[in-house]
Computed example of a mutant assay.
Amino acid sequence: MSGIVTLTAAGAIDATYRIGALRRGTFTRADSYTREVSGKGVNVSAALAAGGADTAAVVVLGVDDVRFARCGLTAPLLRIVEVPGATRVNTSIIDADGATTKVNAPTPPLSAEAWDATIHTIRAELAARTAPWLVLSGSLPELAGTGRLVDLCAVRATAREHGARLAVDTSGAALDAVLADPAGIDLLTPNADELSAAVGRPLLTLGDVVTAAREIIARGVVTVLASLGADGLLAVTADRAVFARADAPYVANTAGAGDAALAGFLLGLTRAPAATAAGEDPLIVAAASAAEWGAHAVAHASTIVAGPPHGIRASVETAPDLVRALTPEGEA
């Protein structure tokens, strides 16, 4: 059985408040409040499941919140690694204009025993699947008492052991660690800011993004899926660049859009044999699917999408205008 296993080494509880207006330093009563188990890998698996894929979400959660996690909509997907205490809480505040203010709790360190248990759980899930994907999503914790991030070599070795293709969606110090030795990564999914930081220069046009992505590809990555926010996304390989963009019916919550886009891309790739047989280009199918799922996600009030996109169609360019300017930050 093929499938997609996601890893969230720093699980979270997502708390989402909807308010009329956010005014700094004042009391505000929320109009509504939701709470759900999250973390980027959980979000990806939820979208994959909504798209009909076989998926499991390996996630590290505090034991205080395991009962809550097992009662949620994503419970059947979760493969929980329990650690002492409570799970960190990430907070989104969404105002009446649809703007999202997000505050994420710091990532707690992980013991060596918990990391070993996490790798063991990944190994078990990959072993149950043929030619799977392993998706490493979200921030990485430090190994307790070392001041260093958990060892990614164990993740890569486990993927290789089971013939799994490896996708990585992370940022900050974890992304720096990945980029220091990215050989063997099949899919890397930075946003424009992360890609800019990786190459050490601003990215102002689509051409700038393609050039930066190919610098990463030259280090050993197969495909870079660059998220450009409201501008769309670019799927870049060593010799191709496909641009895709889709309009959301409305904007309810931008948190989780990148996770849904990654899920959409992987869902598109799972249709590659059928697409090829039908004379379609798998990279085009995957890029379009990513844009549609991303647009679908922003129309959801929560970070977990409940079903596949309907009525959203991406526009795709196989020869994008490389001099097209990106929208400046804050003007989307």
Rank of each mutant, 00 (worst) to 15 (best):
T101N: 09
K102Q: 10
V103L: 12
N104W: 00
A105F: 03
P106F: 04
T107C: 09
T107F: 08
T107P: 00
P108S: 08
P109S: 06
L110C: 14
S111R: 00
S111Q: 04
S111I: 02
A112K: 10
E113S: 13
E113A: 15
A114K: 00
A114F: 01
W115L: 02
A117N: 14
A117Q: 13
A117W: 12
I119P: 05
I119T: 03
H120M: 14
H120T: 15
H120D: 15
T121Y: 09
I122A: 06
A124S: 12
E125I: 00
L126R: 08
L126I: 09
L126T: 01
L126G: 00
A127S: 15
A127Q: 15
A127E: 15
A127K: 14
A128I: 04
R129W: 10
T130I: 15
T130V: 14
A131V: 14
L134E: 12
V135L: 08
V135G: 04
G138K: 03
S139L: 04
L140I: 10
P141K: 00
E142M: 05
L143G: 06
L143M: 11
L143W: 08
L143A: 13
G145N: 03
G145T: 07
T146I: 07
T146H: 02
G147F: 07
G147I: 09
R148E: 14
L149W: 00
L149P: 00
V150W: 00
L152Y: 11
C153Y: 13
C153G: 15
C153S: 14
A154D: 09
R156Q: 09
R156N: 05
A157F: 08
T158N: 08
A159P: 04
A159G: 09
H162M: 02
G163E: 15
A164L: 04
L166I: 10
L166H: 08
A167L: 03
D169C: 01
T170H: 03
G172N: 01
A173C: 07
A174C: 05
A177M: 08
L179N: 04
L179F: 06
A180F: 10
D181C: 10
D181M: 05
D181A: 15
A183Y: 14
G184E: 11
G184K: 11
I185T: 04
D186V: 08
D186T: 10
L187Q: 02
L187W: 01
L188Q: 07
T189P: 02
P190T: 11
P190G: 12
D193C: 09
D193S: 15
E194V: 09
A197T: 06
A198I: 12
A198S: 14
V199G: 10
V199A: 06
P202Y: 10
L204E: 13
L204Y: 11
D208R: 04
D208L: 09
V210A: 03
V210P: 03
T211E: 14
A212M: 12
A212V: 10
A213C: 12
R214L: 02
I217V: 13
R219I: 07
R219S: 06
R219W: 13
V221E: 05
V221I: 06
V222L: 14
